[in-house]
């Protein structure tokens, strides 16, 4: 079963545990500036929205890369950046429609979510299940279940 990250912004509190977990996994320290997942705050709306790579099947970043530094991890579906091949040209950052691949000034390479090899640290660190790692084919099931629960067949039949 392939899984994907699934984000429910309404559950996010803006604590940034995900950003710390991500930077710890990839950089070995706590550094939100180097996190592959970012939480955006919309202050006057009182909303917090975690955002990261959705691992497109036909990935714009992968297509755009002139050195073929971005490859598919067949096990997880993640698009991986091979630092040995990346030349830091940043074309992928222009190609990505969502902005989820970014340049790292410390390494001179681009960085993006790699799903932590199939066990994403952000999802494990999230205290409210705003970020989950679930069956890629059933990411809509929770919402379906919510709507299904509102269906009152008896009332409908009587009407």
């Amino acid at each position: 079963m392939q899984r994907s990250l699934y984000i429910s912004p309404d559950k996010c509190t803006g604590c940034l545990q995900c950003e710390m977990a991500c930077s710890f996994e990839h950089e070995g320290n706590f550094n939100p500036a180097k996190s592959r997942i970012k939480v955006f705050t919309f202050h006057t709306e009182g909303r917090f929205v975690p955002y990261t790579c959705t691992q497109c099947d036909e990935a714009w970043c992968k297509s755009a890369c002139p050195t073929e530094a971005i490859t598919l991890d067949a096990a997880t579906g993640a698009k991986m950046v091979n630092d040995g091949l990346c030349v830091g040209c940043k074309v992928c950052t222009i190609a990505c429609p969502f902005g989820t691949i970014n340049y790292n000034t410390t390494t001179g390479k681009v960085m993006k979510c790699d799903l932590c090899g199939g066990d994403p640290a952000c999802a494990k660190a999230c205290p409210t299940q705003a970020i989950t790692y679930i069956d890629a084919e059933g990411t809509g099931y929770d919402k379906m279940r919510t709507w299904a629960s509102r269906t009152d067949t008896q009332t409908a039949a009587q009407a």
């Binding site: 509190t13 604590c15 009182g46």
Partner: peptide, 19 residues
């Protein structure tokens, strides 16, 4: 009350956001 909000790193999230 619009929502609760966490401070940095907080897994309690007691903060109030109101309108």
């Amino acid at each position: 009350l619009v929502t609760n909000q966490a401070c940095f790193g907080c897994t309690i999230a007691c903060g109030r956001v109101a309108r």
